[in-house]
Structure formats: C-alpha cells, structure tokens
Design a protein around this nucleic acid. Structure first.
Length: 763
DNA sequence: CTGCTTACTTAGTACACGCAGA
DNA sequence: TCTGCGTGTACTAAGTAAGCAG
C-alpha cells in the first residue's frame, strides 16, 4: 500500500544542526569570504575553474561562459516549455466597456430580484464582470450561522477495554477517548511509527493523570504492554455494521445529517448567498504529521465554542449556542476572508473556517493570482537577463539571489522558508543545504531533498555553467553538510528583490507562471484531430508535464501493480486472439502467406509457454464464471421458489469449458484452429483482426497512461497552477466537453473562467 | 532589520460514493 | 443486481508571504 514516495530521514540520530550553530557557522563564513561586503570574483573563479577545467586563461573563460550561459539558458527553458516563444496577444481594450455595461444590467437585475427570494442556486453574481476597486475591504455585510462542533465522545460499551499487561483497564472517559484515537489507527503506518507512538503515549498518560489515573488501580507506564486490539476490533465491527445498514436506513441518516448541516453550508456575503467551505470544526484526534514530523501522534485537543472567534458584520445576529456556552470572541473584520477561527494546540497556529472554493471571493483571488502570473510574462525576459548577468556579480549576496531565482525559475522550486526544530525537516530553494546538492562536473547537478509534505525531489540535471560554478562556490569549505547553501538569503530578501521588477512579484508566482506557460505551450502542440478520447489523453499528457515540473506526486494505490498486471494480461490475450485469427486465415487460404508476408510475421511471436498460460488463464476464468453464475442463478431461484439447478447442470457447463480446454491443448500441439463459425471467410477474419488491433491500441494507450500517471498527481496543478482559462479555451477550440476536464466542483470553482473566455484567449 | 503573528494558498491522503462491467 | 475499483470530495497538514512590534 505505501510507497517510498515520502521519505523519512534515514537516520534518526542525524538531526540537523541546531539553529544557533547554523547561524554561527554562517557568520563565520561571512567573515572568511566576504568581510568587505564584496569579493574578488576573479580569484574565486580561477580557483573554481582550476578544480573544474584545468587552466584556461581567465578573461577568455569569462567571455566563453557568457555566451554559453545565454545559449544554455534559452535551450533549457525551451526544452521545458515545449516550443519557444509564441507571441502573446495584449488583452483587448473592449473588456472594460463590456464590463461596465453588464454591471449596469446587473444592478437592474438585483433591484428586480430583491423581493423575489434568492435567485437560482448559483446566485448568478458575476464578479468578473463587475468593477472592483479597493480590495483590502473584502465585504460590507457578512452573516452566517457559525460552525458545527464534532459530536461529544460516546464512551465504549463496558466490555470493550484497553488491556495492560493482559489485564483489562478501567479508563476515565477522557482517557478512553484518547486511547481510542490510537486504537482506531492500529493497522495504519502511523500506529507503527515510533515517534507517533511516543507522542501519543505521552499525551495519553498526561490526560490519564489529569483525570486521576485508571479507576481499577492499574498503573500504566509501558506503551508496549498496552493492548488496543479489543478497541480496534470494536471500531471495525462498528464500521462493518454501518456498512450493513440497508440503503433505506443509510438514506435516512444522510438526510438527517444534511438537515443538520444545511444552515451552516451557506452564508450571506454582501447580501448574496455563498457557500462556506469547512464549516465543521476539526474533531479531536491524534495529529497525523507528514514525513518525519517530531510532533506526529500528539493529541489534537477538542475545540469548544469559547476557543472559537467568529467574524461577521456588526449587525449580523450572533449564532446561538446551547445554554451556558459562549463564543470566544466576536469580531467584525471586513478585511479578511474568514468566518471563524480557532487556535490549534499542535503548533499553536490558527485554523480558519473560510468560504468554499466556488465562492466569489476565492474566485477573485484565483483570478488575481493568474493575472499576476500572466503579468510576469512582460518581465520575465528582463528578470532572466538580469540573473544571468548577476551570476557573475562581485557581491556574494547578488550571486546567491541570481542562482536562487534561476533555480526557482528553471526547476520550479518553492521559496523555502526557514523551519523550526519541531517541524519535519523539509526544504525549498532558500533553505537548501550542502547535502541536498551534488555537483558532477562539468555541469550536472543532482538535487535530492525533501520538499513540502516530505515529498522527495530528485533530479539529475544539467545547469548553466555559471550556476554550476556558483553552486561550487556556495559549497566551498568550511561549509559542510548541515550548512545552508544560500547563507545570505531567505525568501523575504528574495521577494523584496523581485518586487523591483513587478509589484506583487514573489517567488511563488514563478511556479504559477511556468506551470501555466508550460501548459499553454503543450496545448499548442496538440493537433485538432481525432476523437474526444484521444484529445483528452493529450490534454492529460500536457497536464502531466506540468505536474512533473512541479513535482506533484501521489502514492501508488495498493492495487496498482495488480491492475497493471490485469491490463497487461488483457492485451496479451487480445494479441493471442489476433494471432489465432491469422492462423485461421492461413488455414482457409495458404496463399495469403505469400501475398502479405509482413501481415503474418507475428504469428510465431507467442512462445508455447505464453500461449499455454493464456489458455490457462482463460479457462480458469471460465470455470470461475460457471461457479458464480451457478450460485447466482440458484439464489435467484431460491428467492422465486423455483426448482434449483443441480450439480449436474453445473457439471454440464463445466464440461463445455473442459472441452474448450482440450481444444486449446490440441491447438497448442497442432496449431490447427477450430473456429466456431463454420462459414467464415478471409475477409470476415480480416475485419475481426482489424477490430482487435484497435482494441489492442486503445488498451495499450490506456495502460501507458495508467503507468505514467501512477506516481504523478495531475489534480494539484489543475487546481492551483494551470490557468483554468487554458482548459476552457482548449475545450471550446477542440470540441471537448468541459465536464471531461473539470469535475462539477472545479467547474464551479472556475466558473469565472468557464463563462468569461473566448477561444482566442491566451495565457 | 528580525522574529513572530496572522492570513491565505497549496498539498497529499482517506474514504465515500457511484459507475462500469460481470 | 452486485461488486470491485477508480474518481471525486472532504479533510487538514504544510507551505508562502505580508505586516507589525520591538
């Protein structure tokens, strides 16, 4: 089930250097390298090039690299972005006129609709056609019904207990709840993780202590003496029982739940109905940190109304609470987009209840994000030119900035902010350390580090020669494993630098820009031909390039291998059928072999063993089918009170299969095909073969797609990085229904794109 | 500046649900 | 009609970045 996708640090003892010692080291480096604030690049370069290339006179080397840098840079980005530079149309000026007009129309509609109840479910508010001014104020009125709290804990029946040292333990309810959190996870990877166990156990004991220990005088001190399996089994049983409910009962439960949730699902923003995203307060449980998170397994405590801050307008009614409970705080902050928040106890940060993805405010943010990325188009050349030039700056800081921007631009690395000791040790660009980058002359770099979510980033790539040299400089002694590569840099320095090129430009914009740009370029390569399915496949391939660029991974599903095997078997079987038909043709007409020798070449492709195993598989499947059919048929007959099929009926079917088996066996020896249809002709067989060929093709493509997608997650880039207008335009232009690309919720999230774009739009 | 707080965006996973194929 | 499995959605962790106080 699990893959090696997420990498834990292989050695628990190998903790990163303490922050302080890192800083000390950085300071030390500074003195040695750069006490005057600049350094002599020639000296540095000559040292490096000595180690790398041998001797080359300095000046010439400089010039040469300059040119190489340029070439390398353009080549690199072309390679990634598909084809080169397509000119991008300026946005048309008609837009403003159009929007003003529809704004007026909109206002009229609103007046009309005022006492008409709410308009259709979608509300029909097209913010993208309205003028928006100041965006620090997000709303003028905001009303909502608060949040749903998780149901209170229901104690276990008295026969379900934790066992300690083989003895049943009577736990206070609160402690039992915590024990249950762990018990529920018994089969999972978390439960096997020692850090998880330790953190859970500590918190469990603390809760136990708080409520006075066990009630039957058992002192719990050793995790390994705890046996949660009875609790686990009980949860499994409950799950099973829930599954067993009749569809009627399930429906009933669902309806009840929906009725309860209804008031929380929507809120009223500036008089319009909008959906709320996560209106449920997160239930208590054990923190499931990703990767080697030091706090994984800790108790995530229950949130009560008094922990929750509500945000609504001043006139909004305050959502009622049961007797004796009250909200932590009521706020009226219209510069933010959250409805409620609370502080979480694991890392002491905030959790927010926010609008749903399809809300107008989120839509506007999305729109702005992509427009900002599009704006980068106008600056990217200058930025690239600059960082290429500054790779040779005399100032260390400048070199680091240049290399960092290069990496962010070319390899779509994240900014990489500093992380504290009590988080998983993951890095991005600015936080890369010595050991994450391996240099192989002349200019190959191996990146190997854990990024966001502890997803491994592993790439062997060729980089610009000067980038390579600089990386070598950044790794020079006394730096050693554990030290920051970019010791003068952090995301805020980088972002401040980027703002000079374009207001609002930050490191993350490059990911959006390069993702969407790549998608545009890839889509441009797709010919407008073939079936919808074929076009879809190509769209997904384009999507995949982007996902790979962004290193979006997913774990391989537990039955992936099996399902690939199945698909392979299916293809083999189809091929066997094809060969068999070809043999049959030759049986009918030997002269065909001479007429089209190529066509018949493949008839010897299958080895006897292969063929035999295909036979075996088919026969096994047939036998199974017989049994299943028999059982099913009899169930039905029993129900209808008819005579049951007898064993001899079953035998009859099985005999038929047996006959086929014998035929196959004979075929294997004699290569004589016994076909069912007696009056077949070469033409008919040819037709069948053609059909088979098509099926094989389709299956093969699907299989390849499946394999290529098995570790790549397309969703993340589709949702966050690829300008949705690209997909909309693709659909319009290529006659692909949008439903094939955007699920219902994505269509709603990207409504602004779906409804506003014409087919000439370009990123 | 630096470090901390706050807000918002991006991310993979778990699991329910629905649909295709037997 | 049932089942298996793949997809879609809910969930929440883990990033980025802005802003502010000291």
């Amino acid at each position: 089930m699990t893959t090696e996708k997420r990498q834990y640090s292989s050695d628990d003892e190998d903790t990163p250097l303490a922050q302080t010692s890192k800083r000390r080291r950085a300071a030390q480096l500074e003195e040695e390298d750069d006490d005057t604030g600049s350094f002599d690049s020639d000296t540095v370069l000559s040292q490096v090039s000595e180690t790398l290339n041998g001797r080359t006179p300095e000046l010439e080397e400089e010039k040469k690299t300059k040119i190489e840098v340029k070439n390398e840079q353009t080549k690199k980005s072309r390679k990634r972005q598909g084809t080169g530079l397509k000119k991008v149309k300026k946005e048309s000026t008609t837009r403003k006129v159009k929007t003003t007009r529809s704004k007026i129309k909109k206002e009229e509609e609103e007046v009309d609709g005022e006492d008409e109840e709410e308009e259709e479910e979608d509300g029909g508010y097209k913010w993208w056609e309205a003028e928006k001014e100041d965006d620090s104020v997000k709303w003028t009125t905001l009303k909502h019904n608060g949040v749903i709290f998780p149901p209170p804990y229901e104690p276990l029946p008295s026969h379900v207990k934790l066992y300690y040292d083989k003895k049943p333990v009577d736990l206070p309810v609160k402690a039992e709840e915590v024990a249950g959190f762990y018990a529920a996870l018994l089969g999972s990877d978390h439960a096997k993780n020692p850090v998880f166990q330790k953190n859970f156990f500590n918190d469990f004991l603390e809760v136990l202590r708080e409520c006075g220990g066990t009630t039957n005088n058992i002192e719990i001190t050793d995790f390994n003496k705890c046996d949660f399996s009875k609790m686990f089994e009980y949860f499994e049983l409950q799950k099973e029982q829930r599954k067993q409910l009749s569809s009627q009962e399930k429906k009933q439960l669902r309806l009840e739940r929906e009725k309860l949730e209804e008031p929380y699902k929507f809120c009223e923003l500036d008089g319009r109905k909008e959906q709320v995203g996560n209106f449920r307060i997160e239930p208590p449980g054990l923190f499931r940190g990703r990767g080697a998170h030091p706090k994984t397994g800790k108790l995530k405590r229950r949130v009560y109304p008094e922990d929750v801050v509500l945000n609504l307008d001043k006139d909004a009614p305050i959502p009622p609470l049961p007797e004796g409970q009250k909200w932590g705080e009521i706020r009226h902050d219209n510069t933010v987009q959250w409805l409620a928040m609370w502080r979480e106890n694991i890392s002491n940060s905030f959790k927010y209840v926010r609008f749903a993805a399809n809300s107008s405010l989120n839509g506007q943010s999305d729109y702005k994000k992509f427009e900002k990325a599009r704006q980068l188009k106008d600056h990217i050349d200058a930025i690239r030119k600059d960082y290429t030039k500054n790779l040779k700056s005399k100032i260390m800081l400048e070199r680091q900035k240049s290399v960092a921007i290069y990496l962010i631009d070319v390899f779509a690395l994240r900014a990489g902010g500093e992380k504290s000791e009590d988080e998983a040790d993951t890095v991005g660009c600015c936080s890369l350390r010595y050991e994450h980058v391996t240099l192989n002359p002349p200019n190959t770099v191996i990146f190997d580090f854990l990024g966001k979510d502890s997803i491994r980033y592993y790439q062997e790539v060729e980089v610009d020669k000067q980038v390579f040299k600089n990386l070598a400089i950044f790794k020079r002694p006394p730096k050693q494993p554990g030290d920051q590569l970019f010791d003068r840099l952090d995301p805020s320095i980088l972002n401040k630098h980027l703002q000079h090129y374009m207001p609002g430009l930050t490191a993350k914009v490059f990911r959006t820009y390069n993702a969407s740009k790549t998608m545009q370029d890839q889509l441009d390569l797709i010919p407008n031909e073939g079936t919808v399915a074929e076009k879809l496949l190509k769209y997904n391939a384009a999507n995949r390039t982007v996902a790979i660029l962004c290193n979006h991974q997913r774990s391989v599903t537990k039955n992936h291998a099996q399902s690939v095997q199945k698909a392979n078997d299916k293809i083999k079987e189809l091929e066997w059928q094809k060969i068999r038909l070809k043999r049959a043709i030759l049986q009918l007409d030997k002269s065909q072999l001479k007429k089209r020798p190529k066509y018949f070449e493949e008839i010897d492709d299958l080895t006897k063993e292969d063929e035999a195993s295909i036979h075996k598989r088919i026969i096994e499947r047939e036998i199974e089918k017989c049994h299943k059919k028999f059982a099913r048929e009899n169930d039905k007959r029993k129900f209808e009170e008819q005579d049951l099929l007898t064993e001899s009926d079953l035998k009859e079917w099985l005999d038929k299969v047996e006959e086929t088996r014998k035929n196959y066996e004979e075929e294997l020896e004699t290569r004589e095909i016994k076909l069912k249809a007696a009056n077949t002709t070469v033409e008919k067989l040819d037709k069948q073969i053609e059909k088979l060929d098509q099926r094989i093709q389709v299956s093969a493509i699907q299989l390849r797609d499946k394999e290529e997608n098995s570790q790549v997650s397309l969703g993340t880039s589709k949702i966050n990085y690829i300008d949705p207008r690209l997909s909309v335009v693709f659909c319009k232009k290529y006659g692909v229904p949008i439903e094939k690309i955007f699920t219902k919720s994505l269509r709603e999230k990207f409504k602004w794109a779906v409804e506003s774009v014409d087919e000439n739009w370009r990123f």
